[in-house]
């Protein structure tokens, strides 16, 4: 077994005892179960969960991610004095966070659907799209959180930066996009707009969800580029690739910092 997997295993064992992780799982469970109890069928519950996934998942990944890395300092220092390489250490650390976060997401949302399977059949495709996007967002934003935590030695500054990044991705950025759309209404906007979307991982996740849940509306676009991008599997392909890049690139820069860092 490689050292990365070993590190991941220790982190898993440690993190399952973390009460914040437990709280995250309970919140997801309660939300999903609550939506079912309020008289929703599977389809309506998923629609309500879209916003939860788009807002809560990046927030949790960013804040947990930075705190986790600061809290793992002792663990990192201990292991680096053992015959453990930094690459393996880093991979194990990230996997040890992203994996349980994804599992909690899958369980917290998936379990209520299984419980209600008799009364309301599971809209499998939509659920897979929702949970898949949630996991990709978790991967991307934990990677970004690692980069932030490695950038700032001071944990208060790191945590604050994580919140600012979330606020930008979730709110400010889209406000800016809307400003662009209304200001430059007379210009061809399709390509710049799609580029802007690619530059925000949260928007990417959101557009992946739109491609499933709002495809009828998206077909109303007149522009040829939109039609090609949003009307075919090209959009899904590019979206998945770009969101994966939002995991890989921050991880790569994070690893570079991690390798050069003094402990």
């Amino acid at each position: 077994m490689s050292n990365a997997v070993k590190v991941l295993r220790y982190q898993l064992r440690d993190i399952v005892r973390n009460r914040w992780m437990l709280a995250y799982g309970l919140v997801l469970l309660a939300l999903t179960e609550g939506l079912f109890r309020l008289g929703g069928d599977g389809g309506r519950v998923i629609l309500s969960l879209l916003n939860v996934v788009l807002i809560l998942v990046p927030l949790v990944a960013l804040t947990f991610g930075t705190l986790y890395l600061y809290n793992a300092r002792e663990f990192i220092e201990l292991l680096l004095t053992q015959p453990v390489g930094r690459g393996a250490m880093f991979a194990g650390l990230w996997g040890g966070l992203a994996l349980p976060l994804c599992l909690i997401l899958l369980g917290g949302i998936g379990l209520p659907f299984l419980l209600h399977v008799a009364a309301s059949p599971i809209p499998t495709r939509s659920l897979v799209v929702l949970l898949g996007t949630g996991c990709l967002l978790t991967a991307a934003f934990t990677a970004i959180a690692f980069l932030i935590a490695l950038r700032f030695e001071d944990r208060a500054r790191g945590f604050g930066s994580a919140l600012v990044v979330w606020l930008i991705c979730a709110v400010v950025y889209d406000g800016m996009v809307l400003l662009v759309v209304t200001t430059f209404r007379d210009y061809p906007l399709e390509t710049p707009l799609l580029t802007l979307i690619l530059l925000n991982p949260l928007d990417l996740g959101r557009v992946l969800l739109l491609l499933d849940f709002d495809v009828a509306a998206l077909m109303g676009y007149t522009g040829a580029v939109f039609k090609r991008f949003l009307g075919t599997s090209l959009g899904i392909g590019v979206g998945l690739a770009a969101l994966s890049a939002w995991t890989i690139v921050p991880l790569w820069f994070g690893l570079r910092r991690f390798r050069r860092r003094d402990f």
């Binding site: 406000g175 759309v181 209404r185 969800l209």
Partner: peptide, 20 residues
């Protein structure tokens, strides 16, 4: 209403900003 006047804005559907 916004989308009616600015068709490209549709891409912001379901964003937190738009909910606000």
């Amino acid at each position: 209403f916004i989308v009616q006047q600015h068709d490209p804005a549709l891409i912001l559907q379901r964003s937190f900003f738009v909910s606000l």
